[in-house]
């Protein structure tokens, strides 16, 4: 199986494509495939040349932490959660998420997600829950991995300078549901950085690895 990877040695260097021949298990995940390419032997590309090991992030390897988010055959997905047998064609094409600065190869800097939540004071503070809020949805919203997949697919999100995407909306909902004193203010912040601009393509829900129904957060906050 051929694997093409968009590589970049450092944050300031040029990107380039490099191809590899993968002969490992066909039921592996993309994460398993990357491990196999990196550490089965000296790493060589499909031209037989020795090359750098492929950089990518991982932690849990079971779809619970969001570290290994990348673009796999054109779709944003978690590498540990995507299996070769489910991919179409005989080629796997990997590239880093495009909406974040590249650190190295497939590892990107997602600090902007946290920075935007911090600068808008998206925190609960004193717990004074709003009545009649679904615990089930709060539970779902709190499962957000901050992986950035929803931002990668979003047609409205570019670089996180003004529109902050679904990851922001769901945390706003948690504040709204859990501190009624902040509910009015957080709705304004939400509207400014999400609600007023979101074109409701809802692709964010298609790629969310935790299946968070962001539309439910939006329904509450748009009211």
């Amino acid at each position: 199986m051929k694997v093409r990877i968009l590589r970049q040695e450092s944050p300031t260097s040029e990107q380039y494509w490099e191809s590899f021949e993968y002969d490992g298990p066909q039921d592996a995940s993309v994460a398993g495939m990357l491990d196999h390419l990196n550490y089965s032997d000296d790493i060589v590309n499909d031209a037989g040349q020795k090359t750098r090991r492929i950089a990518w992030e991982c932690s849990c390897l079971q779809g619970a932490c969001g570290a290994c988010a990348m673009v796999i055959n054109g779709m944003p997905a978690l590498a540990c959660d995507t299996f070769l047998k489910d991919l179409e064609g005989n080629e796997v094409v990997l590239r880093p998420l495009t909406k974040f600065p590249v650190i190295r190869d497939l590892a990107v800097d997602r600090t902007s997600i946290h920075h935007n939540l911090k600068r808008c004071d998206v925190y609960i503070g004193a717990y004074q829950p709003l009545g009649n809020q679904s615990f089930s949805h709060q539970y779902d919203a709190a499962k957000c991995l901050k992986c950035g997949l929803c931002l990668e697919i979003c047609p409205n999100y570019t670089n996180g300078n003004s529109f902050f995407g679904a990851v922001f909306a769901n945390d706003c909902y948690l504040v709204y549901a859990r501190n009624r004193q902040k509910s009015r203010d957080i709705k304004k912040v939400y509207a400014h950085h999400f609600g007023n601009t979101c074109s409701k393509s809802l692709t964010c829900m298609d790629v969310c690895p935790m299946d968070i129904p962001t539309i439910a957060s939006m329904a509450k906050l748009n009211r």
Partner: peptide, 11 residues
């Protein structure tokens, strides 16, 4: 090295 969402605690 990484944000809290990557910590083992989430597991």
């Amino acid at each position: 090295p990484y944000p809290s969402e990557r910590s083992q605690s989430v597991m």
